[in-house]
Structures are given as structure tokens and as C-alpha cells.
Nucleic acid binder design. Sequence first.
DNA 1: TCAAAAGTGTTATCCTTACACCCATGT
DNA 2: ACATGGGTGTAAGGATAACACTTTTGA
Lengths: 325, 325
Amino acid sequence: MAVRTSIEIGLSAVIVAVDGTTPKIFAVRQPGSDGEEVDGLPLGPFDPLRHRTLEIGLRSFVEDQTGLSLGYVEQLYTFGDRGRQARRGDADHVASVGYLALTRIADGHDAPEGTGGHWRPWYDFFPWEDFREDRPPILDDAILPALRAWSTADPLAAPPGRALGRRERLRLAFGTGDVPWDEERVLDRYELLYEAGLVVEAQRDGRVPAGATLPVLGAPMRHDHRRILATAISRLRSKLKYRPVVFELLPPEFTLTELQQTVEAIAGRHVHKQNFRRVVDAGGLVEATGTTSVATGGRPAARFRFRRNVLLERPGAGVRLGSRT
Amino acid sequence: MAVRTSIEIGLSAVIVAVDGTTPKIFAVRQPGSDGEEVDGLPLGPFDPLRHRTLEIGLRSFVEDQTGLSLGYVEQLYTFGDRGRQARRGDADHVASVGYLALTRIADGHDAPEGTGGHWRPWYDFFPWEDFREDRPPILDDAILPALRAWSTADPLAAPPGRALGRRERLRLAFGTGDVPWDEERVLDRYELLYEAGLVVEAQRDGRVPAGATLPVLGAPMRHDHRRILATAISRLRSKLKYRPVVFELLPPEFTLTELQQTVEAIAGRHVHKQNFRRVVDAGGLVEATGTTSVATGGRPAARFRFRRNVLLERPGAGVRLGSRT
DNA sequence: TCAAAAGTGTTATCCTTACACCCATGT
DNA sequence: ACATGGGTGTAAGGATAACACTTTTGA
């Protein structure tokens, strides 16, 4: 029999809420290894003696730690990566199970005193992912030049297990050449930046000579949390389209514009208004409440609520986005 | 600080290959808790001291244990479920990370001596999932009557965390009434059967009075392995449609009929031949080799190979199935 | 010459996309 | 009256589904 290795299982939660047009995550600020304050995800141990399943354990520690009650919860991925988690010589090795959780933001109620918990816009960590105003300037100013240099230095290099070389991965992930931008490839993009040594985390993990000058590409996070966040955003952007999860982020009643803005906040791009509205009610996703909202500078909007029955009628219902604009 | 709990992380692998028109998994036969021989998935511990990542650990133990070299590997889900894994009083608690792996079946080469390893058709475990010949009789003969009884006994009952009641879950999972059968809902169907106490595993876990007479609904597996297998089949059936993974299961050269049969083996249903062929080459998934295969009772078929370039050209390429027949 | 399987062509239908226009309210 | 956002109609293009038919081999 093999010797049993003692492993602690950590749970990490990407807790998402949308505040107006800003998607936010619940972040915890703590001193990093170098003394600086860095944000991280809420983290808790899994104790199988107290909790029957991982998800129950997650809900419990999140409630204790943040005071939030979670709605939709979904497992993302399990990392056993010692290389990124801990430095050589650490006593115990952590496997961490990442979760995505959706909530409604409670006004005022921010930090549950003491803990550095706060809501932070997720585009702080991924400024290149928000195409709502314009194509983010950071892409052409900093990211693409640096990635192109990295790619042309060795266009065909591929780490073990990867089918494609640097040049092709760059093309697909960042939509250069004839390839269109795909908002779901958040993780691919982050991984490329990490491998190219362009994010602070790569430097911290010793993949880039310390002290090398880096452009500032988004706020860093502790450990591999930014990677987990990228996974969460990818998953949410994709799930949006085939399951009615947006409604977990909205109040019980909302206008179609609020619904659209929430979708756009997550997707990081605008969608075509008229078609969006048609798809939403052709899909039977919402029903009018009969009331109208106070006008916010124009004609008052009808209020809607989520039609729970779609879950029964059209099993694969979601907000298909259609093309850009 | 919380007391550290000692947890062993287990890795389990659903290794899939297609043998002609039969999808098979690599199963390990071992004595179960009741003395009977039961099949289980290949299982290994994760030792972070030896392997940097979970996936590396998985590949390594599978190679040692089965002699197989894996191609495509994908993480499925992590279970921390003590309730199903171990009985109360066990010394250590296992979290298991499930993986899906695809291989080509090596002729002859079956069991790597000694270990009870063998290739077994996956429909042995899920006879109700194969719609290729006809609608499986077991559905109308045994499953649906039993589920309908369970459902009508308490139509609206829903376990915690579930939005829908028994009646609606039955409708969606098994396609009764106007809902069509959805071949991807393999896990939903298995979970329903488990909750209704209709599979042996439910009895074994004490969810049904021992000794209750059950219809025989597929071969059982150890622990929660059949659940993991259901997850794997669901994932593979869905992935098939948007990523070119079938080719991992085929030899380097194949005829379009072989390709179609492999797809059908996994999807558990037939697809429309002419449209399938059109979609496959309109999608640029394959290219002719120029050679033809020895006729197997008719006109010789042209041989094709996978066009690796689709990976570059059309990032979201897969074998869309279209509707039935 | 017939069975069996390979392979081609064509049409109807639906969904997506794009564009143009009208409506109700506050200032 | 006009700016602002809410709301509707309709036509073009592309993908899917369904059908019928021809070709090439072995027995």
C-alpha cells in the first residue's frame, strides 16, 4: 500500500453579483507574501466530518465568512497544482476546488466588519475583457505588442499537452487576423498572458526574472485566484447562453433594459437591442408584471419577472446573444 | 485556526474507446463489500510529492495500472460525498476527482495480466441509453412504470437545492409527454433512478430497505462509479457537438461510415446519413486520403483523415448531430 | 442481375441578422 | 418641441431537415 499523503482540501468561491452595469466579485484583501496588500477569493477548508458534500461545505463557510446567502452554485474546477499553490518545502499540499456562486448585491451591506471583504469590479482584474465602450486600449497598447513579441520569438513552441503553438494560440485567444474576438475565451487569454510572463503572478511564481519590468495588466490576486476567476467568467459567459442564470443576478422584477444591461455586463459586449427583446420574449423567459418602472429619463419601461415555467417548457433556455452590436 | 483534517484525494478515470460500433470503458473487477464481484473504475491516489498536477498524476497511474497511453483527458467533477463513498466510522474520507479519457482500443491487448482489467460495453451499465436499434424496451417495461409510481406518490417533492419536483424532473429527463428524449441527460436520468431507489447502488447505500425487489436496471458499479460514468457519458455526448473529439477514438484513417458509426455509438442514436456527410465535409473536418477501404459488402469507401487545421480555422468545430434518424 | 453500401443533388423551413420606424414620457 | 429611452415590423441570408436519386462494388 502506498503511504497516505496528508492533503488539505480548500474551497474557493467566486461570488458574483452585478451592481448596475458593473459585475463584481466578493474579494478579500490580505497581506501577500511580499507585504503588499492583495485581493484574494474567499477561501475555506473542507471538513468532511461537518459537511456531507463539498457544496454544503462551501455554502456554510461562505455564509460564516461573508454573511451572504448564495443562490446558484456550480463547481468549476479542481486544482492540485502544487507549483502554483505553495513553494517548495511547505508542509502540506493543497488541492483547491473552485466554485462559482451567484448572488444579488445587497445595498450598503459591504464588508462584514474586520475581514477585508469587499465587492470589487471584476474588470479591475481583466481590463482587456470589457468591450462595452470600445475595444479596450490596453489590448493594442500593451498586450498585443508584448504577446506578438513572445509569439514570434518561437512561433511553434507548445508546452506539453498543447496541440497548438504560440502563434496559433494567440490568434484564437485574442482574435487577431481573421479570427473574431470570442468573449468566452477568458481563461485562454489569461493563460497565454501567464505563460508569456506578462502578469505579476507569473513573476511571483518565478517564471520571469524578478524585477523585470512589466506593463500593468490588471490587478493581481493571491495564489492562482485570478486563474480561477478567469475560469468563472468563462463559464458564466458561456452558461448565460443556454441556461437562464442571469435572473439569479437580478431582483425579482426588472425592466428589459436592466436585463439586457446585466447580460452585457457579464458578456463584456453590447447586444442588439431589438433582437435581444424579441429573443427574450419569444423564448418565453419573462412575463410582464403589468407595472411600469419610474422613468429614468425617457418613456417608463414595463416591468417583468422571470417565468419559472421555462424550466419546464424549454429545458435549454438561455439568453442567446447573437452577434455583436 | 481550524484543525486540519486528513483527506486522501482519489483519482478515478473513465477511459473510453469505441470497438466497432460498441463504446467501451476500461473496468476493473474486484470483490465488493458483499462478496460479489463488481466492476469499478480504475482508481489511484494523488500524490502531490510525485506529480505536479492532478492530470499528470492521473496519466501516470493509469499507465502503470492498465498499460494504456491516454490521448485526450478532461476533468469531470470532484466529489467529496462521504455519504456515498464510505460508511460512517471509516478512518479517512476520500474526495475523488473524476476524469474522462479517450483512447483507441488496441486489438487483443485486453487485461494487463492479474488485475481484473477489461473492456466492457458502457451500455451494459446503461441499457436504457442506447436508441440505435429501437427505443430500449426496458424503458417502457420497467423504468417508466416504476418512475411514474414514484413520481405520482409525491409529484411535487424536491430534494433540497432542486428547483423542480419529481413529476417535472421525470418529464424532462426521460422525455415523457411532449418533451423529446435528450441523449445528453444521462446523469439526470441516473440520478432520478438513484433517488427513486431503483438501482442497486441506492439499496447498497441504504436508501431503500435491503431485500426490496428491484428490476435489474443495468450492471451496478462500486461506490459511486456509475454516477461518474454517467457524468462522463453526458459530457462526451455534449462535447462531441462542438469540439472534434471523435477523432481521438478513431484510427488515423477511416471511412465516413466508420466516423458516423463512432458518433452514433457515443450519442446512442442514429443520425441522418446524407446530412451527416455534408456537415462533416462542409465543416472541413476531414480530408480524403485518396485511398479506398476494402469493401465490406458493397461499394468501396473512400478513406479520410482528420484535418488538424480545423483547430485553427474554426475554433468551435464539432460534429453537430442534427435531429433524429 | 441483384443486394449492399457509397455518394450527390434539390427543396422547404426555420432561425438569425440587420435595418427602419413608431410610441410615451420628462424637461 | 425635443431629447431620451421604450417598443414593433419586416425583409434578406444562412443553416438545418427531409426527400429522391445515381454509382460502384461483390456474390
